[in-house]
Design a protein around this nucleic acid. Structure first.
Length: 584
RNA sequence: GGGGUGGUAGUUAAGUUGGUUAUAACGCCGGCCUGUCACGCCGGAGGCCGCGGGUUCAAGUCCCGUCCACCCCGCCA
């Protein structure tokens, strides 16, 4: 293999096959760098000693595929310290051109800044680049580690269907028409959720699968329409058991891929605490800039002379502040930019106050009207010191969290507060079981409808649904949600109450989940599970910037494949056979 | 559905207050060169300035629309 030639091979007769990385034609001598997956090696063609080979090499160009027979020899004083194989070269005796190549649209080398559009159009060329291949080598490793680890923890690798029953709710489904059943459709599985619960009822005990899932939702840097989960489920398991299994998996991945030790047990934070301090249920703990909720403080001062504060608090809104230490010295212009960013994610504006030596506020719309008592109380609450900048956001809690969390991440990056090679992993627990859907006015399952409430909250399912906490947990790594799971309901009464709270009628339950509800009555063990985002884990561990960098053939943000140009229209005959009429 | 960034040779970019023939680097093609490795030297080709419309004597540049890629909100675990 190209990348493996060393001094020890001197004098060996060898054959190398690969792609021409570069050629340097000096007239009587031609140098070719030959590349394969393992690296580069220099081959020299000498006109005086091997005329035929030299004549062929003279015509060879970048990315041609060639095979070369020759002898390894020392480079003497002409070594190349930048190349692992730089102490030796191959003196070519014969060369065979397996295939010439068109000039590639971009150079096949690391560090190129070709537009992603072009890279995806010629993905097979992009994938030739070592730094791109590196990500997939990491990914392959993770696959092996997960299989070995979970198998050794007693899990069975079992498969579930991709073509499944359509159940609305949750993520949008991709549909697959059934030719044999005109007018009817399968859905591509959003996850193997229901099947893995059936496995538990089957006595499969411990199940895992590295499995593709499909969701027809809008794409993001960390979201693709088809993605891979490390999915597992365990019978007779409490939250603690799932955490230990997953911690074990993550520790082995980090140890073997990065030679990094994660803690034996991962820290745990409640959802409420995460939202309060960071405005996010996936807090990045690698830096500070924590939030302070001022709602109650302001209420106790009756708005402190600031009409806006008073109105917001009176109408059930929230006030949050974030302190930017004075050493960061944000300019007026930079703060204005922050306001634009805030508006970009839905804010009306961005309140601000610069703290003076005596604790007074300057550059602030509140400075003139706010009472000294409230001003000092706020300074104290956020821990403000002279020269600090305080940013404020007020309004509906959801929006306040979104805006402040967005600004926190933005500033964390901009102010370079995030250390390289630092890993902060934690569990976030005690999620609300339900979320209120603004449009329908109903409650919807925050996780999925089979998630168990905390035992102490069961009574509140009917009386006070929004205060019920779920026995659900997310694993968060450097501000990325990399896994999520829950204890499942195995009690028919509790399940009925949950459906009631969700406003799902008896009929609807039967139609959608009848098979599972039926199965739960045949001796279902208590069970729990979790699903981890394989792509996200691969992205974070390989240092990739986007999920697309760890998926060999990813989709664009509009869900298209620039290489094959999928999706496309299909033949009328095909549609007719499927009894499908399109309206576009 | 909404907010933002970008689109100029094969690639990456520059292009001023609108003004002659749209620049540069790398790559590509031809020639020379036996120790290069970002090889060097000489010469050359290469453009629907994303697309459509408008303003203007004149548009890469200004205006409107549209397409594509990316980032974010909504949506989605």
């Amino acid at each position: 293999m190209c990348g493996e030639f060393q001094k020890a091979h001197e004098g060996d007769e060898v054959i190398v096959m690969g792609w021409v990385q570069s050629y340097r034609d000096l007239g009587g001598a031609v140098f070719l760098d030959i590349r394969d997956r393992t690296g580069l090696v220099q081959v020299v063609f000498d006109e005086s000693s091997h005329q035929t080979a030299h004549a062929i090499a003279d015509r060879v160009r970048a990315e041609w595929v060639v095979g070369i027979k020759g002898k390894v020899r020392s480079r003497g004083t002409n070594t190349n310290p930048n190349l692992p194989t730089g102490e030796v070269e191959i003196l070519a005796q014969y060369i065979q051109v397996f295939n010439p190549a068109k000039t590639p649209p971009f150079a096949i080398e690391d560090g190129v800044d070709t537009a992603e559009e072009k890279r995806l159009e010629y993905r097979y060329l992009d994938l030739r680049r070592p730094e791109v291949q590196k990500n997939f080598i990491v990914r392959s490793k993770i696959n092996q580690i997960v299989r070995n680890n979970l198998t050794s923890q007693g899990f069975l690798e079992l498969e579930t269907p991709f073509m499944v029953k359509y159940t609305p709710g949750g993520a949008r489904n991709f549909l697959v028409p059934s030719r044999l059943n005109p007018g009817q459709f399968y859905a591509l599985a959003e996850s193997p959720q229901l099947y893995k619960q059936l496995f538990m009822i089957s006595g499969m005990d411990r199940y895992f699968q590295i499995v593709k899932c499909f969701r027809d939702e809008d794409l993001r840097q960390d979201r693709q329409p088809e993605f891979t989960q490390i999915d597992l489920e365990m019978s007779f398991a409490e939250m603690e058991d799932i955490h230990r299994v997953m911690e074990n998996v993550m520790r082995s991945i980090f140890r073997e891929v990065l030679s990094t030790e994660l803690p034996e047990r991962f820290p745990v934070m409640s959802y409420d605490e995460a939202m309060t301090r960071f405005g996010s249920d996936k807090p990045d703990l690698r830096f500070g800039l924590e939030h302070t909720v001022l709602t109650e403080l302001i209420r106790s001062h009756d708005g402190g002379g600031v009409p806006l504060f008073r109105e917001v608090v009176a109408s059930g809104g929230m006030v949050k502040a974030m302190r930017i230490p004075g050493r960061h010295n944000l300019s007026r212009t930079e703060t204005d930019k922050l306001e634009l960013e805030a508006k970009g994610v839905g804010a009306q504006g961005l309140g601000r106050a610069k703290v003076a030596e005596d604790g007074a506020w300057t550059q602030s719309p509140f400075a003139k009207v706010i009472t000294e008592e409230l001003r000092l109380a706020i300074n104290q609450a956020v821990g403000a010191e002279p020269n600090d900048l305080i940013l404020f956001q007020f309004g509906a809690p959801k929006l306040v969290h979104t805006v402040m969390s967005h600004l926190r991440l933005l500033l964390g990056r901009k102010l370079e507060l995030i250390a390289k090679n630092e890993w902060k992993i934690l569990w976030v627990v005690d999620f609300p079981l339900f979320e209120h859907d603004e449009r329908t006015g109903r409650y919807v399952a925050a996780h999925h409808p089979f998630t168990s409430p905390r035992p102490e909250d069961v009574e509140k399912l009917t009386s006070d649904p929004k205060s019920v906490k779920a026995r659900a947990y997310d694993l968060v790594l450097n501000g990325n949600e990399i896994a999520g799971g829950s204890i499942r309901i195995h009690d028919a009464d509790v399940q009925a109450k949950a459906f009631e709270a969700l406003g799902i009628s008896e009929e609807e339950r039967k139609a959608k989940f009848g098979f599972l509800l039926e199965a739960l009555q045949y001796g279902a063990p208590p069970h729990a599970g979790i699903a981890a985002g394989m792509d996200r884990i691969a992205m974070l561990l390989s240092g990739a910037q986007s999920l697309r960098d760890v998926i060999p053939f990813p989709k664009t943000q509009r869900g298209t494949d620039l290489l094959t140009s999928a999706p496309t229209t299909v033949d009328a005959a095909q549609l007719q056979e499927l009894c499908i009429k399109t309206t576009v």
